[in-house]
Computed example of a mutant assay.
Amino acid sequence: MAASIDDAPLQQHPLRKTRWPLTPHEHIPFSHSVAAELTAATVAGALVAPIITIIDRAIFLNASGTQHLPAALLMGTRELFRHPIKSFRQPACLFMFAVYAGTYATANTVHTICDYQGRDWFWPKFYATSVVNVGLCVAKDVYFTKWFGTGLPKPVPLRSYTLYTARDFLTVYASFNLPPIIADHLFQRQGIPRPQAEVAAQLLAPCAVQFVSTPMHLVGMDFYNRPGATVGERFANVRKEYVKSTTARVGRIFAAFGLGGVANQRFRVIGQDWLKQWHSS
């Protein structure tokens, strides 16, 4: 029978271990752990949102033909350094903050619930995080497509929604579920110390999947920008934009789920360590 969520000690799954297990005498209230998890998610989301916004906006502007990718990246970077507060308060950046703070918060909270109940977090975390991230990212992409696309705003086609959804499912799996598996392999088979293995896996896995998911992103935007294009024209567009768009998306995902993922995990550890010290004093 699962332990009570209010007073049960944090548990470990034998294959996917939590980095901050609680011993039986360390009973931290569930509400305190969730507060720490939400704080970690909020801080991590605020750190990466401006960077991701610059890259994402540049990708959309480039895809629509409004502005070349390097020029758009340079423009966004200049704006961020000259007016950081103003840049963060822009609707695009606030939307991005909601996307990633919400995604981290969901992943952290589901992980904590499963740990308190002594259950494996792997699939519950994937499903819950996927639903939240895909929903928020697709909504964000709809607005970004309208804000930075060509011509007057128009309805985003279902095919674009479908491709954006498939893209985000891949990214979520590679960002929250693959890193522990890769880290275990690096630790057990390659002899890499676990902390370094975890950081390497968290930085590399989300980036690697972009080589597969970038064409989905490009075709999804092309359905909106050029609804009458032929299959051959869409393939030619993907081939033309693939290298620079993949490079940009790798940089974007590196910030969002690489650096952001590492920051989120680090803030989780700091929060749990602080709670253990507070409740043991």
Results as ranks from 00 to 15, higher is better:
T150G: 15
T247I: 08
L158G: 02
A166L: 13
Y242R: 00
S280Y: 01
N225M: 14
Q196H: 14
R252C: 09
V199Q: 06
Q196Y: 14
P206L: 12
T150L: 14
Q265S: 09
A229Q: 12
H279M: 03
P179K: 07
P179E: 05
E198R: 14
L203T: 10
F257N: 10
P206I: 13
F169M: 09
E241Q: 03
S245M: 03
L218S: 08
T171E: 07
R226Q: 09
V262W: 02
S175C: 02
G260L: 02
V250L: 09
Q188F: 08
Q272S: 09
S160K: 06
V243N: 08
R234A: 09
K244R: 10
V231I: 14
N237S: 15
S281A: 07
L158A: 07
K154M: 11
L203V: 13
D222V: 06
P153K: 04
L152W: 07
G251S: 04
F267P: 05
G232Y: 01
D184M: 01
F169E: 00
P155T: 10
F223H: 15
G271P: 13
A197I: 05
Y224E: 06
F254G: 07
K244E: 07
A236P: 15
L204S: 15
K240I: 05
A229T: 11
T162H: 14
I181D: 03
T162S: 14
R167W: 04
Q190C: 11
P215L: 02
T150A: 14
R268L: 10
V199E: 10
L275A: 02
C207M: 13
V250R: 10
H185L: 03
V156D: 02
Y161L: 11
R234T: 12
Q196G: 15
N264Q: 12
A201F: 07
A197S: 03
R234C: 12
N225T: 14
K276W: 03
R226L: 05
I182C: 12
I253V: 09
V209P: 02
V231A: 15
P180D: 06
R226H: 10
C207W: 05
W278H: 14
A229G: 13
A255E: 05
P179S: 01
D168R: 01
R234Q: 12
